[in-house]
Structure formats: C-alpha cells, structure tokens
Design a protein around this nucleic acid. Structure first.
Length: 571
RNA sequence: GGCCUCGUAGUCUAGUCUGGAUAUGAUAUCAGCCUUCUAAGCUGAGGGUCGAGGGUUCGAAUCCCUCCGGGGUCGCCA
C-alpha cells in the first residue's frame, strides 16, 4: 500500500531519490511516510527545513486522492495516507487471506529446512532449559512452514557416554532392583534420581572412587559387555519413554530420530578421506591422531580421530551431517542448541565448509542463553532444576484456580480444557518473548503471571473480540470504509504491520518479534475497546467496527498459532 | 590469558545488523475507571549518566577504538 503511494509520488517528483530517503515514522502523528532532507541539504546547500517546505507545497499541488495530508515538520516531510483508503486496503487483504487460510507473508526462497532439536542427554528428565529449546523449535518450525518453506524436524538422542554410565553405576549399586513400575514413578524421573544420587554419593564418599568405576563401566559398554549392555538397554528405554511423554505434553513430533549409541563410532571414513585429499588444515600428529588446524579462523586445533583411530564427538557430527543430507537433501540446517556450544558449531560449520558441505550459508546455530534460578545456574547433576513436566502442571493448576474464581459455574471438563490451554500459553509466551540470546533468571514464584505482556493477555483480548462478534451475531460483510475514524487509526496501522513482524520472524528466525507484535496489537485493540462501545454504534459504523474486530481476531489467531498457542473463544 | 557474548528506570525488556524527530513496553509503587460489548482490561503519576571514556557524523542506545563489569567457552570429553 505504502509502496503504491510512494510510486505515485516518485512519478511526480522524479528528482527525489525516494527509495533511499523514505522511512516509516515512529510516531503516529507523523503520518505514514516520512522523508528526511538532511542528505539533500548537503547536496543543494540549502537548509533541510527549507527543502521540506518547498516539497510540501509541490506535493499539495498535485492533489493525490490517496493522500490525506502533507506536512513539513522541521527537516522532515510527513505524508498521511487517507484513512478510508488505508482501512480498505489493509482490512480487505486480511479478510481475504483469512478466508483462504493463506499466509500473510511468503518467503521468496522457499527452502527445504531441517530443524534439529531438542537433542537432550537422555540421562535425566527434561527441564526448563529444554523447555526453552522446545518452544523455540516448535514455533520456528511453524513459522518457517507457514511462510512457504518445507520443514523437517529431527532429534538426536545423546543416549550414551560417561553421564549415562554414572546413572547406571548408581542404579547398580543402590537400585535394589527397583523399577519405575514398582516405585510408581514416571520412568525418566525415576532414572534422574540415580543420576543425582551418583553426584551426592561421589561428593560424600570420595574413597569409593565412583568416577573411576563409571569410567570402567563405559569401557565395558564400549567393549560390548553383555551384562552392561542389557542393563543399559533397560535403563535407557525408561529414559526415552519418559522423555517421549514429555514431548507429547509439549506437542513435539519428529520426522526422524537419531541415536548417538548407533552412530558414535561413525565418521572415520569422512575424516580419513579429507586427510588423504589434503583438505585445508587436516593433519596427522606424531601419535597418528588426525586433527584439523583452524588457527587461521581463530578456532584453534580440533582433533577428529584419536591415535587409536576411534571417532570423537565432532567426528560423529560430521557423519550425522552426511546422513541427514542423504535422507532429506535440505537447503538449510538449523540447530537449536544452547549458547555454551557456540564454539562447537563454529568449528563444525567451518569443517563442513572445508569438506565441501556448505558452511555458514547453509548451517545456522540458533543459540539461546542460559536460564538461571534465583540460587544460581541450574545443574541437573545436583538436582536443582525446574522439571518440564512439573512446570507445565503447575502453570495449569494456577490457571485453573484463576478460572474457578472468575467463573465458578464452569464444568470440570471445560475447566480442565481451558486451564490446559492458558497454562501452556503463559509458559510459552513468557519464554518466546525474550530475545533467545539473553540469559535470564527464572523465579518460579514471580516469573509467570497472567497479566501484562503475557500469553493470557493476548488470549483474553481474543476472547473479548469473540464475545462481541457473538453478541452482534456478526456475519462477514465488507463495510463502508468511510465510516472509520481516527479512533481506529492506531489499530489499523498495527494490523498493517503484521506482515513485517512475520517477515522478520521468518527470515531472521526472530520469534520474539512476533510475540512483541502481538502484545502491541492487543494493546491497541484494548484501547479502542475501552473508548468505543462497539455494539452501541449506529448501524453502518457498527458494521465497520465489527469488520475491524473480526480482522483483528484473525491476525491474533494466526500469530498465536505460529507461537504454537491455541486460542479460546471464552475465558 | 585468547575467543564469543551480554550490559537500557527497583526488576524485566524493545530498539543495535540497516544511525534520524520526544529511548519501547511490562512489572512493582501511587492515584483514578466495573448498573454500560469479559476489570486476565483501561487512564494518569513518579522512576533513565542507554556500563564508562574517547572518536566518526549535520545527527549515535545504534558504527569504530580503549576500558570496566557479568556469563559462556578454550579436552585425543560429550
């Protein structure tokens, strides 16, 4: 819309480099298009205030029907688009798109994108850190898909290694043959107990040399010792089963799951071949270990094959890259992994680039910051974590309490359903509104509220709109667009910006842009709601306002869905 | 120590990539608004050396340099 008007102006004023100058003003009162004249002022040796004044007169003379007002404000020239033209153009587009369920923004590139998450260590129940990972992954996948990409989701289970062996040892020593069934516990929670128990006993009794014994168990596991493998299989199945249940609560599904235990030895050929082909930086040291020298990239030296020829973590990741390429042929890989692994991914992408596999342009590490508790960093080993299952259950319980107070006559079934949706949204929105890079402190008592910039605030706004439409028995019909007044201007302007928010979220993987947009949109609607009794307006104006309500609801629903949050028509 | 990253009101946060008009909101506090479309809402007030200093520019929270502070990471671990 703006572009069309800009084109018109450009045709009339060919001497102005509008594409370069024009910008969107920050303040509503400055209109829709602003042209600063600082640059021209230098060229023409005239004051920008003077030039702005000159063009104000010129532009007024043209009498462009879509332009309501042209105003020189100091060194700026502000252009106001006519309200009825704007309303028609913005709202009709929304109504059309929602009717056909099409996207408000489509990417030009339309890639096949593989999103890898949450890839947990399967030696413990999932906690708040994973929750952040999962929300980011779920939402990003939806956004990328909706904007025209094909998305695959894969999960790498880290189901082997020293951490698991600590749990195994602990269970062997103190488990007394108990099982999740015998203890009536969720199976991953049962397993987590033995992991933290190891740490506790290890600290209390260094004389038991538990670390060494765990190492020994790892050696047995790698040597294929049957007893160890059987015990591991039993234990890891408990963990995987428990994780799976959590995934269900958090609505994740995968196109493919990988298991480290199945691939941890792979990748030797890739490294060997790269060495033989003298790929840049690849070298062998005197003990026969192969490493790659990345000093030129400030990444140091990275070993890829031990002197005994066995693979390392990085080697396995190279192999996995090949496997994923073979199966999916994606254009782009997105890894959703905590910021503590940034170095690892810098190295991985550099290696992939050197062996001809696409570097930074094909791979992206969506890195997110740590979550701290008021008492410090979360440490699974020590058990001071907020567990994913409990977190969701608590939010739901809180929402339920709230609902009961507001609506004592709700059936238990309806209560349950609404509490589930509201609890989930408060959690998801709380996490997604942050810039993922930033660390934050999670205070369970204070962090999650239902007021202010929250999921429930957005849902509440949606429910309010639904209530109005219900009471008016609204049937969609294009209104008389001249019925709109300045009271609705802010809301209409914000609706027009949805496309930009979605574009930012999709192209720059910036989910928080969408969350912030939603808060802004709801705020504008609530302001209107408070000042304008919609159902009491005259018939024609009411029709126009209802149409606006309906469009707003469509956008809220569309954007919430991309954050993987459901809407409620009543709250 | 090297590298990465963050620093914006009591607390949390947007804006930084791509410099532009009066720095965005939330929360907490205080003062108002429910016989009127759902008060999980709205209005108003107070609260800021945008970590510090220098530079570039007509113009810097934004770009460059130095420094300070927090976090991460630097293994033939995963």
């Amino acid at each position: 819309m703006k572009q069309q008007i800009l084109d018109k102006v450009q045709a009339l004023l060919p001497e102005l480099p509008l594409a370069q100058l024009a910008e969107a003003p920050k303040l509503e009162e400055h209109g829709d298009i602003a042209i600063p004249f600082f640059l021209l002022s230098k060229e023409r040796k005239q004051s920008p205030v003077h030039i702005a004044k000159e063009y104000e007169e010129k532009l007024r003379g043209f009498q462009i029907p879509e332009i309501a007002k042209v105003e020189a404000a100091g060194p700026y020239l502000n252009i106001h688009i006519s309200l009825s033209y704007k309303a028609k153009s913005v709202l009709e587009n929304i109504a059309e798109k929602s009717k056909t369920h099409s996207s408000f923004y489509e990417t030009a590139t339309k890639q096949k994108i593989l999103v890898e998450y949450p890839s947990p260590n399967n030696n413990k129940a999932l906690h708040l850190g994973h929750v952040r990972n999962i929300f980011l992954g779920n939402s990003l996948s939806k956004i990328l898909k909706k904007t025209g990409n094909t998305v695959f989701k894969v999960n790498l289970n880290n189901d082997r290694g020293i951490a698991i062996c600590k749990s195994l040892l602990s269970y062997k020593l103190w488990g007394e043959g108990k099982t999740p069934e015998s203890e009536k516990q969720k199976s991953d929670k049962f397993g987590t107990y033995y992991y933290t128990l190891f740490d506790k006993e290890n600290k209390a009794h260094p004389e038991l040399k538990l670390e060494e014994k765990a190492q020994e168990l790892l050696r047995l596991w790698e040597a294929g010792d049957k007893e160890t493998l059987d015990l591991w299989r039993r234990f890891i199945d408990w963990m995987l089963e428990g994780n799976k249940e959590t995934y269900k609560n958090y609505k994740i599904s995968f196109d493919k799951e990988y298991f480290e235990s199945e691939i941890y030895k792979e990748g030797k050929e890739i490294v060997q071949k790269a060495f033989e082909n003298k790929v840049q930086g690849f070298a062998k040291d005197e003990s026969g270990a192969i490493f790659v020298d990345l000093e030129d990239k400030n990444l140091g030296k990275k070993f890829l094959l031990r002197s005994d020829g066995t693979a390392l973590y990085m080697t396995q990741d190279l192999y996995l890259a090949y496997e994923k390429e073979k199966l999916f042929h994606p254009d782009k890989y997105v890894f959703i992994v905590g910021s503590e692994q940034e170095y690892h991914f810098h190295v991985l992408f550099e290696l992939l680039s050197r062996i001809g596999f696409g570097g930074n342009e094909k791979n992206f590490h969506l890195s997110y910051g740590m979550i701290y508790l008021p008492e410090g960093r979360m440490k699974s080993r020590e058990g001071n974590v907020v567990e994913a299952d409990e977190l969701l259950a608590e939010q739901k319980a809180l929402a339920k309490e709230n609902l009961k107070e507001r609506n004592p006559n709700l059936s238990e079934e309806e209560l349950e359903k609404r509490a589930q949706i509201i609890g989930y949204s408060s959690l998801a929105f709380f996490i997604l509104k942050f810039n993922p890079r930033s660390d934050f402190v999670f205070n369970p008592k204070e962090s999650l509220s239902f007021e202010g910039e929250t999921g429930p605030y957005v849902q509440y706004t949606y429910a309010r709109i639904c209530s109005i439409l219900r009471k008016a028995a609204y049937k969609e019909k294009a209104p008389d667009f001249t019925e709109y007044s300045d009271k609705e201007l802010a809301l209409i302007n914000t609706l027009a910006k949805y496309k930009d928010a979605l574009e930012e979220a999709s192209e720059q993987y910036k989910i928080s842009a969408l969350a912030h947009y939603l808060v802004q949109l709801c705020k504008k609607f609530n302001e209107l709601y408070q000042n304008e009794p919609i159902l009491k307006a005259g018939e024609k104006r009411k029709q126009a306002l209802l149409y606006l309500c309906s469009c707003t609801a469509s956008i809220i629903k569309d954007a919430l869905d991309l954050l993987d949050i459901e809407v409620l028509e009543e709250m």
